[in-house]
Design a protein around this nucleic acid. Structure first.
Lengths: 351, 351
DNA sequence: ATCACACGTGGGAGCGCTCCCACAGTACCT
DNA sequence: AGGTACTGTGGGAGCGCTCCCACGTGTGAT
C-alpha cells in the first residue's frame, strides 16, 4: 500500500497541483485526465490516475465552478407548497424519472419548492446568482412569470406541460389530444351514444387539447359533437360534482362521461350514484391520470395513463442537450424542441 | 431610476470590484457590507447598498465558496429509496420542519436519497468533496457506516433517532421512553389489567426505549411486568399480526395492547377482530406515530404523536450551531448535544 | 503636547481550478 | 533538407470572492 499519507499538508485535501507533482506532470495534464480529455497519452493517464488514487484526490467543486463558470447542478422547481408535492404521485413519479436519468451523470439535482411568495423571492435570487446550469419546470400556471425570468437570465430550461401551442421554452408533454381520443373511441366502441365531457381547467393547455381530442374522436366517428355535452370543470372533485349535476339535468339519458381527471370522475361518480345511475350499466365513466384513486374506486375506474416517469427522463435529456449546446457560448439558433409522449388507456370496470 | 445599465461588461454579471468602483469604496468594504459586518459606517453602508441595487449585484457563490471554504449548503440524507420517502409522512413532516427553520437563512437545503448501493457510493464521493457544510441524517440503521464517514471527514452532522445511548453524533429524538409510559399509564387509568406490548425492531434504539417505558410504567403502578406479555415486532403490519397471534394464544384474557407503531397496531387489530375481540370493549389498542392510519382506522386509534416537524427544526438549530462553532477552526471541545422532544398521547376510540 | 488605542477603510494575496497559448517532439509531405 | 501539421505537454493568467494586514483619522488618557 503505497502513499499511506493521503494528506500532504495537515488538514487540507490534496489539490490538482499536488497530484501533478506526485505524478511528475503538469497541472494542465492532470486537469485533462480528470476531465476525460482524449489528448493525453495512455502512460501519462495511468500515472495520473495512480497519483489520484494514492492521494485520494477529489476535485474541489467550488474552484471548478468558479473557473469554468458552471455548477454541474440543475434544479427541479416545483411551484407548489410542499404538501401538494408529497400528496400527489405525479411529483414522485417525475422525480423518479429525473433521478434515474441523472444517475449516470455528474449533475446534481436540487429540489426547490416555490409555493409561497417568499419562496419565489428566494428562487429568483437563486436563479439570478446562476447557481444552477439549468432548470426543470413542472406544473406551471399560465400566468407564471418564472419562464420569462429564465429566458431573460438565459438559463436553459425545460417545462413539462407547455403553457400553449406557442410555448417558447423547450417542453415535454404527454399526448393529451391522443389520450382523450382513445378514451372517447373506447366509449364509442362499447356502444355508448351520448358521451359527455367534464373538462379540466381550460386555462391549462393540456385540458384544451383533451377537449380537442374529444371532439375529433366524435367527428371521425361521423358524429357531430354537441357543445352542451361539454361542461367545464377544474380538475377538482367539487368541480366534477357541479358539472355532473348540470349535465344530468340537461341530458338525463346520457350514457357515458369522460372526465378531465380521476378526481373529477370521483365527483361525477358520486352525483351519478345519488341520481340512481349504475356504473357502468347505465353510465360508463372514464377518468384521466390513472392515479391511485382510479384503482381504488368502486367500481375501478377506466383511466388514461400518462407516462410520467418517462416524461421526467425526457426532460432531463432535453435539458442536458440544451446545456451542452450552450456551453460553447455560441447561441446556435436551435429550434425549440417539444417532445410529446404517448398515453395509454387503462380499461377497468367502470366502462 | 439611476444606473439603468445594469451590466458594465456585456454578458457578464457585475462583480464586487464593479460595485466597489461604483460606490467609490474598496473591495473589502463592499464585502463587509454584503456579509453584514458591523465595522462599516452608516454612510458607507448606504452608498454600497445603493450601488448593489443599481447594478443588480448578486454574489457569486462559487467564488465565495472557494475563498471562504464553505458552501452555505447542507444535505438532508435519506438512506431509503425515494418511494419510501414519499410513502411516509414522517419524511414530509421532517422536511417541513427543516425547511421552515432554514427559510430565514442563506443556507441551501439539498435532499439526497441513498437507498441503493450506487447512490451511497455517490454520496460518499459527494461528502468527500465537501460539497456541504453539514449533514442531517434521518432514519439511520444501527450498522450504517455513514456516521463514521462523516466523523472521519469532520463534517458537522445531526442525527434524528440516536443509534444508542452512547450516540457519538449530535442527535435529536422524541421521548420514546416517555411516550411509551404515557400510553401504558393511559391504559392503566382506563382500568386495563393485562397490557401486552408488541415492540418495534429491537435493533432500533427508540424501540428499546419504548420497552423500557412500558416496563417502568407498570413498575411504578406497583405491577410486575410480565416478560411474556412483551412480544417482538418489527414495525410492520405482518409483524403485528404474528405477534398478536402469539400473544392471544398465550393470554386469551389480555385486555390491552400497546403496539410499537400504528402499522403494527393495524396488524394486531386484524387478528383481534378475527378472534372475535371487540375494540375497545374487550381489548384496548394503542399505537405509536399518530399517522394517517391511526385517524382512519376503525375504530380510530389512540396513538403517541411524535413532534416530527419540531424535530426537524431542532435538528437545523443544532446543526447550524455546530457549523458556526467549527468555522473559527478552533475545535472547541463542545460536549455532544442530544435534544429530546416531548411526545403527546392522542386519545381516540380504540382505548 | 504625547502616546495609546480604538474604528473604518483599502487593497494584496491567495483559494483550486480551467482555459489557452506556447513549445518540444514526431511524422509525413514536398 | 526544409516545410507543415499534428500530438502531447507545461504553466501563466484569471475566475470573483474572503481574509487579513496596514494605514489613516479621531478620541481620550496622560
Amino acid at each position: 500500500m503505497a502513499g499511506h499519507g493521503a494528506r500532504s499538508r495537515s488538514g487540507g485535501r490534496p489539490t490538482l497541483e499536488e497530484v501533478a507533482a506526485r505524478a511528475g506532470v503538469g497541472r494542465g495534464t492532470v486537469s485533462r485526465v480528470i476531465n476525460g480529455s482524449p489528448r493525453v497519452s495512455d502512460t501519462t493517464r495511468a500515472a495520473v490516475q495512480a497519483a489520484v488514487a494514492e492521494l485520494g484526490y477529489v476535485p474541489n467543486t467550488a474552484a471548478r465552478a468558479l473557473a469554468a463558470n458552471r455548477t454541474d447542478a440543475i434544479a427541479l422547481v416545483v411551484p407548489e407548497p410542499e404538501t401538494r408535492f408529497f400528496a400527489e404521485p405525479y411529483f414522485s413519479d417525475m422525480l423518479r424519472g429525473v433521478g434515474s436519468e441523472l444517475s449516470d451523470t455528474e449533475m446534481q439535482l436540487l429540489l426547490i419548492f416555490a409555493g409561497s411568495d417568499r419562496e419565489r423571492e428566494r428562487l429568483a435570487q437563486y436563479l439570478a446568482a446562476h447557481r444552477v446550469d439549468g432548470v426543470l419546470l413542472v406544473s406551471v400556471h399560465a400566468d407564471d412569470p418564472l419562464p420569462d425570468l429564465l429566458a431573460q437570465l438565459e438559463i436553459p430550461a425545460v417545462i413539462s406541460g407547455p403553457r400553449s401551442a406557442a410555448e417558447t421554452l423547450t417542453s415535454v408533454d404527454s399526448d393529451n389530444y391522443g389520450g382523450a381520443r382513445s378514451a372517447v373511441e373506447h366509449l364509442l366502441a362499447r356502444g355508448r351514444n351520448r358521451i359527455a365531457h367534464i373538462t379540466g381547467r381550460l386555462d391549462v393547455y393540456g385540458a384544451q387539447r383533451r377537449v380537442d381530442g374529444y371532439r375529433d374522436a366524435l367527428l371521425d366517428a361521423g358524429r357531430k359533437p354537441d357543445e352542451l355535452l361539454i361542461e367545464p370543470g377544474d380538475f377538482t372533485e367539487e368541480g366534477g360534482r357541479r358539472a355532473m349535476t348540470t349535465l344530468l339535468e340537461r341530458y338525463p339519458d346520457l350514457d357515458a362521461v369522460f372526465a378531465g381527471s380521476d378526481v373529477t370522475a370521483a365527483g361525477a361518480r358520486q352525483v351519478l350514484r345519488e341520481a340512481g345511475r349504475r356504473i357502468p350499466d347505465d353510465v360508463a365513466l372514464v377518468g384521466y391520470d390513472d392515479s391511485a384513486i382510479a384503482r381504488h374506486m368502486d367500481p375501478p375506474l377506466t383511466s388514461v395513463r400518462q407516462p410520467i416517469v418517462e416524461m421526467g427522463r425526457a426532460m432531463i435529456d432535453l435539458l442536458l442537450a440544451e446545456i451542452a449546446d450552450r456551453r460553447p457560448a455560441v447561441s446556435r439558433g436551435l429550434e425549440r424542441r417539444h417532445a410529446v409522449l404517448r398515453t395509454e388507456l387503462v380499461v377497468r370496470a367502470s366502462s
